[in-house]
């Protein structure tokens, strides 16, 4: 309860400074500073291996940073005494590979953490889960197993699972990269709707059209640094740095169409 009070007086939801991360001798993040304000949609773009997924995974400490600080909802997660599990309850995460719980039906996927972590009652958890399934257009799949769903449905279910925890911020790690092209649109549609509702979102993506239309801010990462950041229209349509230009021309020009 005490944590929730500090959240409301600040407009900054995610505050990262001086973040570095290396895997063995491989330096992936070389000093990242980033601010995400409440209600903002921030897209992180960049070539593969640039560290964008690692940066996202540092926000809820799925990866432990080597140095620097990560403050989410006013709680410094990099502090040695931080209650990471408690902080993660309010940070929704959506993975490239969906990661739905294969042994649980769709509804149970949405209720299990509500019940075991938030200690909500069965009825309350079910009501919240059903409301979120409706939000992502999967009301009729409540009793299906994840393996019976298409990739796009699985990803929308994963979004609903994260939403059921009432997150302050949602992290999306290449949410459409594992999908067949014709299924990408549904998932992006749900994300667009979330953005319109004012959800704070941090999205690692290759969908430039989505970034351009939905993001308030775009970060271009390369080689472990944020090379360029600014309003979506500016970074994507009128990039200033040579590396951003090269990357965007490669991504946008080879007749790259989006659903």
């Amino acid at each position: 309860m005490s944590e929730t009070e500090t959240e409301t007086d600040s407009d900054v939801v995610v505050d990262i400074s001086g973040l570095t991360k290396s895997f063995g001798s491989l330096n992936v993040l070389l000093g990242i500073d980033m601010l995400v304000n409440r209600g903002e949609v921030v897209c992180i773009i960049g070539p593969s291996g640039s560290g964008k997924s690692t940066l996202l995974r540092c926000v809820n400490l799925l990866e432990t940073p080597n140095a620097g600080s990560v403050i989410v909802n006013g709680v410094e997660l990099t502090h040695p005494d931080a209650d990471i599990d408690a902080a993660r309850r309010r940070i929704g995460m959506v993975f490239q590979s969906f990661n739905l719980f294969g042994h649980l039906r769709v509804l149970e996927n949405l209720t299990v953490a509500q019940r075991k972590v938030l200690k909500r009652g069965r009825q309350e958890a079910t009501e919240i889960a059903l409301a979120n399934l409706e939000r992502v257009g999967l009301s009729d799949k409540a009793h299906a197993l994840p393996s019976e769903l298409s990739g796009g449905q699985q990803q929308r279910c994963a979004i609903a699972r994260a939403l059921s925890m009432d997150p302050e911020v949602m992290l999306f790690d290449e949410p459409t990269s594992a999908l067949d092209p014709e299924l990408v649109g549904d998932v992006l549609g749900v994300m667009r709707q979330l953005a319109d509702e004012g959800m704070t979102m941090l999205v690692v993506t290759h969908e430039m059209q989505f970034a351009r239309e939905v993001a308030d801010k775009v970060l271009f990462m390369d080689g472990g640094y944020v090379v360029e950041e600014g309003p979506a229209e500016q970074v994507i349509a009128d990039p200033q740095h040579e590396r951003t230009k090269t990357f965007l021309s490669r991504v946008l020009n080879p007749a790259h169409q989006e659903g």
């Binding site: 799925l62 309850r89 993975f95 699972r161």
Partner: peptide, 21 residues
């Protein structure tokens, strides 16, 4: 798959809770 644990942990489950559930 490792992603199952990551999904459970990112929902706020502890290591033990993720293992059991």
């Amino acid at each position: 798959p490792k992603g199952q644990v990551e999904a459970a942990r990112s929902l706020g489950m502890s290591q033990g809770r993720a293992m059991i559930t």
